[in-house]
Amino acid sequence: MSSTSPSTPRLADALIARAEALIQTGQRRLLGIAGAPGTGKSTVAQLLAEALGPRAVVVPMDGYHLANRELARLGRAERKGAPDTFDVAGYAALLQRLKKPVEGEIVYAPFFKREIEEPIANAIPVLAEVPLVISEGNYLLLDQHPWNQVAPLFDECWYVEVNADVRRSRLVERHVRFGRSPEAAKAWVESIDEPNARLVEQYKDRANVQVPWD
């Protein structure tokens, strides 16, 4: 892992070792990192990928956000981020494809660009020889249709937890950073992010590991 300063979060050695153990067979493994909005899932995934180097790649669930124009057509734009604002079948199909890599083939996964609030297709190349695919997202552990087709595709799932006040503060800061006023950011967190967080938390006991995060 790259060197860290005192203010840089650090992933526990035990978690890195657990991920290492997953790929000891040399076969492709899928690791899910779930958690409520704002818990630090993407940070955990990125730190783990940095620790494993070329043996891991991160493919976020957020790449399967429905496009803004489709959310508008469906009347769901004001609930963006809720479970029914994703292409769940498309995400599951990608995971199924990633589970069975074909020698010499590159699978291209989408990426969600917050600056424009839109997914970008074919942005993440996943080479067949990479043994660990890490996918992070809110709803990986949900046991309700259509999300219930996702959890069984992972070889292991972790659940990231953080203090609720810290999590809400992070979310407000994120929304402000990407263009909302402080008032609008707080309103969005309370009306959209918090109901989603309560739903996600109901399924945390389905995870193989619970990861406390600062």
Rank of each mutant, 00 (worst) to 15 (best):
Met1Val: 15
Ser2Phe: 15
Thr4Ile: 14
Pro6Phe: 05
Ser7Tyr: 13
Thr8Pro: 03
Asp13Pro: 11
Ala14Asn: 15
Ala14Gln: 15
Ile16Tyr: 04
Ile16His: 04
Ala17Arg: 14
Ala17Lys: 15
Arg18Gly: 14
Arg18Tyr: 12
Glu20Ser: 09
Ala21Met: 01
Leu22Asp: 06
Gln27Cys: 11
Gln27Thr: 15
Gln27Ser: 15
Gln27Phe: 13
Arg28Ser: 04
Leu30Phe: 01
Gly32Ile: 00
Ile33Phe: 04
Ala36Gly: 11
Gly40Arg: 05
Gly40Met: 05
Ser42Asn: 08
Leu47Ile: 04
Leu48Gln: 05
Glu50Phe: 07
Ala51Lys: 00
Leu52Val: 11
Gly53Tyr: 03
Pro54His: 04
Pro54Met: 00
Arg55Phe: 12
Ala56Ile: 05
Pro60Val: 04
Asp62Cys: 02
Leu66Cys: 07
Leu71Arg: 05
Ala72Leu: 13
Ala72Ile: 13
Leu74Gly: 05
Leu74His: 01
Gly75Gln: 08
Ala77Glu: 15
Lys80Pro: 06
Gly81Ala: 10
Pro83Tyr: 00
Asp84Gln: 12
Phe86Tyr: 07
Gly90Met: 00
Tyr91Phe: 11
Ala92His: 08
Ala92Asn: 05
Ala93Glu: 10
Leu94Asp: 06
Leu95Ser: 05
Lys99Val: 01
Lys99His: 09
Val102Cys: 10
Glu103Gly: 07
Gly104Asp: 03
Glu105Lys: 04
Ile106Trp: 09
Val107Cys: 05
Pro110Glu: 02
Phe112Thr: 09
Phe112Val: 09
Phe112Ala: 07
Arg114Val: 03
Glu118Ile: 00
Ile120Lys: 12
Ala121Cys: 01
Ala123Asn: 12
Ala123Ile: 09
Pro125Ala: 02
Ala128Ser: 13
Ala128Gly: 12
Glu129Thr: 10
Val130His: 06
Pro131Asn: 01
Pro131Trp: 00
Val133Glu: 02
Ser135Asp: 07
Ser135Thr: 11
Asn138Asp: 04
Leu142Trp: 09
Leu142Glu: 05
Gln144Thr: 13
His145Gly: 15
Pro146Ala: 07
Gln149Asp: 14
Asp155Leu: 02
Asp155Asn: 06
Asp155Arg: 06
Cys157Tyr: 06
Val160Thr: 01
Val162Tyr: 00
Ala164Leu: 08
Ala164Ser: 12
Val166Asn: 03
Arg167Gln: 08
Ser169Ala: 14
Ser169Val: 09
Arg170Gln: 00
Arg170His: 03
Glu183Asn: 06
Ala184Asn: 12
Ala184Arg: 12
Ala184His: 11
Trp188Gln: 03
Val189Thr: 02
Val189Gly: 01
Ser191His: 13
Ile192Glu: 13
Asp193Met: 09
Glu194Asp: 10
Pro195Leu: 00
Asn196Gly: 06
Ala197Cys: 09
Arg198Cys: 11
Leu199Ile: 01
Val200Glu: 03
Tyr203Ala: 12
Asp205Ala: 12
Asp205Ile: 10
Arg206Lys: 14
Gln210Arg: 15
Val211Leu: 04
Val211Tyr: 02
Val211Lys: 01
Pro212Trp: 07
Asp214Phe: 11
